[in-house]
């Protein structure tokens, strides 16, 4: 991945405030046990490449150790917009409602993201930006990395919460052992 491409993707999918997982620290989230926290590049123990297709991941299961920091190289090899999001099933369910809104407002249009729409002020200072550190939202052909430090919570999935994708089976198991 070139630096410029990374910057473009990073700019497009920059910071916002969503209801969960925006924090830098686990614990205290409404959904119970945390999925971990953003990792430091210096602590990365290994890199896992995750390819996103329409509508599934390769691989569909990974194994990590409690407290391990992993760099995920996430690549969208499909023709549709996909997400890579680390969280508990409950967190994914909550996030799916936001993603539904993004579709209904034309932010996600099949194989395209409407970046202008993502920036738009929705009132209350909120926008439909998609920028949590536990996730990336990619157009076809885009790549981006996620560095994540896992906790000892074993109820973790990586998932695509674009409406319908999770339900169709676009998620993978994280085995913590």
């Amino acid at each position: 991945m070139t630096i410029s491409k990374f910057l473009v993707a990073a700019a497009a999918i920059s910071l916002s405030a969503t209801a969960f997982a925006a924090g830098t620290h686990g614990g205290g989230h409404g959904h119970g046990a945390a999925s971990g926290e953003p990792g430091k590049a210096s602590a990365v123990s290994r890199t896992i490449t995750v390819e996103m297709y329409d509508n599934y991941y390769e691989p569909e299961s990974i194994t990590v150790s409690p407290g391990e920091t992993v760099r995920f190289m996430v690549e969208n090899k499909g023709n549709l917009v996909h997400e890579f999001n680390i969280g508990t099933p409950e967190m994914h369910e909550g996030h799916q409602e936001e993603m539904m809104m993004m579709v209904e407002h034309g932010v996600i249009q099949g194989g395209r993201l409407n970046h202008d729409m993502m920036e738009m002020d929705m009132g209350n200072g909120q926008s439909m930006k998609h920028d949590d550190p536990n996730s990336v939202l990619l157009e076809p052909g885009q790549s981006q990395e996620v560095i994540w430090k896992f906790s000892d919570n074993s109820n973790i999935e990586f998932a695509c919460n674009v409406p319908g994708h999770y339900q169709a089976g676009m998620y993978g198991d994280v085995k913590v052992q």
Binding site: E97, E104, H105, G106, Q109, M120, M122, G123, N124, Q126
Partner: peptide, 30 residues
């Protein structure tokens, strides 16, 4: 296109209908 068509008019509507929203209520209403 459905999506394109919903663009701006709806965005405005969202401003008023409680952006504290993104909640169940406004979603199902939609």
């Amino acid at each position: 296109s459905n999506m394109g068509g919903m663009d701006h008019s709806n965005m405005e509507a969202m401003d008023h209908s409680g952006m504290s929203g993104m909640d169940h209520g406004s979603m199902t209403m939609g």
